Simulated assay, not measured.
Amino acid sequence: MMKTLRHVMASAALVSTLFVAPLAVAQTAAPAAIPQAEGQGPAMWVIRDADSTLYLFGSFHFLRPDTKWGQSHVDAAFASADEVWFEATDIDDAAQGMQLMQTYGLSPDRPLTSLLTPEDIAALDAALAPMGATAAAFDPMRPWLVSLQLAIVQLTAAGFDPNSGVDKVMLARAASLGKPAKGLESMAEQIRIFSGMSEQGQVEMLRGTLKDLDKGPAQVEALLAAWSTGNTDVMGHEMIDEMKAEQPEAYEALFTRRNANWTRQIKTILDGSGTTFIVVGAGHLVGQDSVQSMLAVEGITAERVTQ
């Protein structure tokens, strides 16, 4: 579960659209105040050249409403931006999300239980029992979709909400300030990342979810504490290292390839001028294959902002 919760909380923003009713944010309404972080707060980096300033801020897509993550220097950087970039800006399009889920999340010709061992099915039955469901009821779904759904059920039961997540809050803030919001990718692209994994890779993802089901809540709390205090070393270990070793296909799809794509786009942004604020899942800004590491290979240095 923990590895899948990493995907949900700090990797792919699409999941809030797939399973949770989106918040109807009035484009002119002032967003709610963010509880101020204690100490250093979540990490942010800055890149500067002769005529450009670019900020990188790592988000959590699901947060509790009372999570303390606001920081004055982040607010100032955001206010200075000419435009704001997110993983995707169409995450509130529920109709599109449901259509994409029908296209990429279902495979009635390949029933879920036909892909699983008896032990897998028993574990899935046990996980679904509190919902009054069984593994057979999920037969039309592809393994990646079941894995994410289990993770989100656990997150929402623990009080986490995508409408309190960094992406939704900052999208609303950009709208209230009249700042253009742009996407590094689309919802469709994000969904195809999951659905494009091999069948075996998806089954491994689901098995990892089931294996760590009981450990999830405590590990999420530890990960949230690391993010909210800017402890990138802990985040890299908890979010990246284990997944890279145990689920290499999912890691390649969710992190390495996307980080490389975003690095190319950031280089293009830097070729222009002005100030840009970029919000992406925190998992993309830690570890050896982070966006900053890929930019460094291109001779572009990102510096940590501490105040």
Rank of each mutant, 00 (worst) to 15 (best):
T103I: 09
A158F: 10
I152H: 01
E249Y: 12
V20T: 13
L14H: 04
I240M: 07
A302K: 02
A37T: 07
P140V: 01
L254C: 08
L254P: 01
L213R: 08
I121G: 00
S80Q: 15
T103D: 14
Q202S: 05
A32G: 15
S107K: 09
G283W: 03
R304H: 04
D271C: 06
P31R: 09
E87T: 11
V297F: 01
T67A: 14
Q200W: 04
A282D: 04
A12D: 09
K267S: 13
L5Q: 14
W262V: 05
E298D: 15
P140N: 10
A94G: 04
V8P: 03
K179M: 07
Q102M: 12
I191L: 14
F60Y: 12
Q99C: 00
D109T: 14
K215V: 03
A260Y: 00
R6V: 15
F19Q: 05
F160I: 06
D120C: 12
I266G: 02
I152E: 05
M98N: 11
A88L: 11
L148M: 15
Q247H: 14
S16M: 06
L184T: 00
V286N: 08
L5T: 10
T229L: 09
A30G: 00
L213Y: 13
F19C: 03
I121A: 05
G281K: 04
V153Y: 03
G97R: 04
Q99P: 02
V46K: 10
T117A: 11
L100D: 03
D161K: 08
I269V: 15
E221H: 07
R264M: 06
A94L: 09
E252T: 12
G208C: 06
V220C: 05
E189T: 10
L177M: 15
K168G: 02
Q292E: 12
D289H: 13
L210S: 01
T28Y: 07
G159R: 13
Q265Y: 03
L100F: 08
D161I: 01
G299H: 12
N231P: 00
L213D: 08
P31M: 09
H284T: 09
S176Q: 09
F57Y: 14
W227K: 05
M170Q: 14
W85G: 01
A260M: 08
